[in-house]
């Protein structure tokens, strides 16, 4: 009897400790965050059904550290010619008329001490979906990845390293050479 009580106590203790550790490890991780946006823009409709390329709207992802949310004039490139009307499209047009920018809620937030450059990753042919998930199926965008340092490093250690080696072939062919992709100073400065 005494042994079984001890056993149960031990199991409870270990489980709760595990749960506490798990909870603590998720502090500041907002995986699954899917805030409501001022305009219910559907990536599923645009990127999925209509197959608009990601970089058409997020063009600065090619050149800048920010992917950029398209300015309203980019929306109006198409919507000035499309006749379909919904409440959300009305909101968009209203914004144009009132010359009032749209205040979106940022979904993917990195801390200030992390330098992330979209163009660097787009240039290395990392698909947008690798980090953002299947955006083309999302009616409302949610944070798919945990965006933790460990998650970044997973890719840096495998794909990043591979890319680096292939790119560095011209420079030197030492297979054991350390790679800058996992340097702290790659992202933290």
């Amino acid at each position: 009897m005494r042994a079984s009580v001890l056993l149960i106590a031990a199991v409870v203790a270990v489980t709760s400790a595990g749960l506490v550790a798990r909870t603590l490890a998720r502090v500041g991780v907002h995986q699954g965050y899917a805030p409501e946006q001022p305009i219910a823009f559907s990536h599923k409709l645009h990127a999925g059904d209509s197959k608009v390329p990601c970089l058409y709207c997020h063009s600065s992802a090619r050149t800048s550290r920010h992917a950029g949310i398209p300015s309203v004039n980019v929306c109006m490139n198409c919507h000035s010619m499309l006749t379909k009307q919904t409440v959300d499209i009305e909101r968009l047009k209203e914004a144009v008329q009132r010359r009032q920018p749209i205040v979106w809620t940022k979904v993917h937030n990195l801390p200030d001490f992390v330098y992330f450059n979209h163009s660097q990753h787009v240039g290395a042919n990392v698909a947008c979906q690798s980090c953002h998930g299947p955006v083309e199926t999302m009616a409302r965008v949610r944070q798919e990845a945990p965006l933790t340092m460990g998650w970044c490093l997973d890719c840096h250690r495998t794909r990043g390293a591979e890319l680096q080696r292939s790119r560095m072939a011209w420079a030197h062919a030492d297979p054991n050479a350390p790679l800058p992709v996992t340097d702290c100073g790659k992202c933290h400065y």
Binding site: M149, G150, L153
Partner: peptide, 9 residues
């Protein structure tokens, strides 16, 4: 030293 989500650090 404890396991963490930093990959691990």
């Amino acid at each position: 030293p404890y396991p963490n989500s930093r990959g691990s650090l």
